[in-house]
Nucleic acid binder design. Structure first.
Lengths: 209, 209, 209, 209
DNA sequence: GATGAATGAGGATTCATTCAT
DNA sequence: CATGAATGAATCCTCATTCAT
């Protein structure tokens, strides 16, 4: 269980330094995407980044720090997408939920392997302040969205919807699915069902129970 | 791309050998539960099992084979629980689904850390015949259950419900939740919503959208 | 550097025991032939011989003892072949030499891989009495043969001819040669040249130096 | 059937690195000379070289790569010696052959144990391009030398002479012989005999068959 | 600041050999 | 006597990290 510092060792001030950091992150992301965590070795990252191993350690105190930074970046993007989805459009719960689910899908969609690898690594990572804050904010957005409607426990619902979405999307992506509209529709159906906002209107045949 | 043999090296014939194998599996499960995959070293497993490293390799050709065996055991239990849930009780889709969801919860509930670790490891494991068969059978049970009712694509629904359940349960367990009845109710709500079998009856207030 | 006993642990008296020993030797020879020394593990030998590892150690105190026994067997056969070659036919040096060379070729010819492996292993083996004796006898035969003719140092010549033959044959076999008559002719030419018994008679064109 | 890369992992750029590599090769040669291939363990080599095991693996990807490098060095020297022997002096076949045989003797003479160990190891080694090239060139020199004279199959003769020389020298060295002039004379006699260039002139008494 | 050589603890796996049953 | 389960020293090799230049 590591307890070492997990944030970048020093914030790059000069342009060259910023480029170095970017190269390292890019290299790490590439390796993570194509080879998984097991392939992520500091020496390989440095090599792919075209940087000496010494320089890598100039900016990242440990290997975990690299992973943590990539994870933060991913979460930042996710938060940003969710924020846009929550604000834009009408405040109709159904359509807002749908937009947010689409945003979550997009999150796993751009670089599925990378997202998978980072999330798997998350449990080994000591959580820094920013990561915690991001998680809280993401959760807060869902909660806020759901709070505009009468729900007994909006934060519980937020938690469950995030989990449900994450579970379905992850598995679908893993299974090679690529029809995002179809996937979004299915996830939405489950989510609205959870919220007791059932719909018989979708392109779904009638049922005889 | 894994390719090595993954089944146990030889089947223990004598009682002593069976005890050895059991001790190894138990030790591995314990380590996996408390330290995760990274803590699972063959030497540690052997030590905890009170067995020499040589004995471990008599029965498991590689470290992965141990993981594979534990995974098989987990799936066997899961399959068994699902079968019971599918058969027992009326063929009412709602109650059958509820029972199956409860069975799935139980699957993650007895040893959550172990299940998490094993599932995370699964993608690195070369799947043997039995593992494949178990996966197929588990999937088939869901499909069969859903097929008794008019659904456009039962196998798709089976896939989605399993993913949805898995996602919600995993996260809840991870977050420290222990009220399984409550969890089961929430998952079921999402599942029935997905299946267009909405309910206003649960201990849930009515909503005005 | 082993100094342990190298002769069989006990001489098999009963028929069953003799069969066991034979099976072990056969298995070891097979493995040596097809996989080389590195493939020769005691457990594998026992398995191939259809014998328990415990039984193997009943008859051979160490792995080296098995190799030593195979080597002795090989040398016994070589000695026997050489004896026949030395005795049979006229005592004409040229033809005797030819016959003995043919015998040596045969020695490497029946199971080239085995012979190679055993000879390579020889240097690691503590020499037992019988092996020493066999070597002496083989050398003595060459010496005796050459002694019937006026040579300054028959034992030196014996040594050299054996080495020359061994070197040429080994390499030729290794290179995949299979025309033994041709090989024998070439070796003989070198041998007779060494003995100053030159021949312009072979199917060899005339030379202009 | 070997297939792994066998050339050094990276070429040392700094002086310190070059010293490390040299130390490793020296240590390996020493161990090989005094203990044989079985004594050659990577940890021992590193220890004797006064270098960490990690450093060893910076420059040699596998243990075999070390052997391969030593073998290459040996062959390079052999080739060089042969080239000098072939060029210098008159083009008289007899004296050229003698010089080349002396060169070959020198090859086994400087570090007999090392040469023996390396040659024994050769069959287990995946041959890289340079090794192949060296072998070809060595063989070509013999062939070229013999081609200047009317011989039915110069490349066959080259092969045989190399084998004959190798066999006699190896055995003589092994037997503790140190009088190289005498050895060279005997080998030459066999070689010239093979080539049908017999001599009664050496310090050898006349024979009556 | 940058470089890359060096480090060495740690981890997977093998195999000759012993010994209780 | 036979069996085969158990042993553990020994071996190859990796990779995060440090530090002299």
């Amino acid at each position: 269980m590591p307890s070492a510092p997990i944030s970048p060792r020093k914030t790059p001030r000069q342009a060259r330094a910023r480029a170095t950091v970017a190269a390292i992150e890019e290299a790490a992301a590439h390796i993570l995407t194509h080879g998984g965590v097991d392939a992520l070795t500091t020496n390989l990252v440095a090599a792919r980044a075209g940087v000496s191993i010494g320089s890598l350690y100039q900016y990242f105190p440990t290997k975990e720090a690299i992973l943590a930074e990539l994870l933060r970046k991913l979460r930042r993007e996710h938060l940003h997408d969710l924020e846009r989805a929550a604000q834009q459009g009408g405040d109709d719960l159904r359509s807002t939920t749908t937009r947010m689910i689409r945003a979550s899908i997009a999150h796993h969609t751009e670089a599925p392997e990378l997202a998978r690898a980072l999330e798997a690594a998350e449990s080994h990572l000591p959580l820094d302040a920013e990561s915690e804050a991001l998680k809280t904010q993401i959760s807060a957005i869902w909660t806020a969205t759901l709070s505009t409607h009468a729900l007994p426990d909006p934060s519980q619902a937020a938690f469950d919807l995030a989990a449900l979405t994450h579970g379905m999307v992850t598995r679908a992506v893993q299974a090679g699915e690529r029809d995002w509209d179809n996937l979004a529709a299915r996830v939405t159906r489950a989510a609205l069902g959870y919220l007791h906002l059932c719909t018989q209107d979708d392109h779904q045949p009638t049922q005889q129970p």
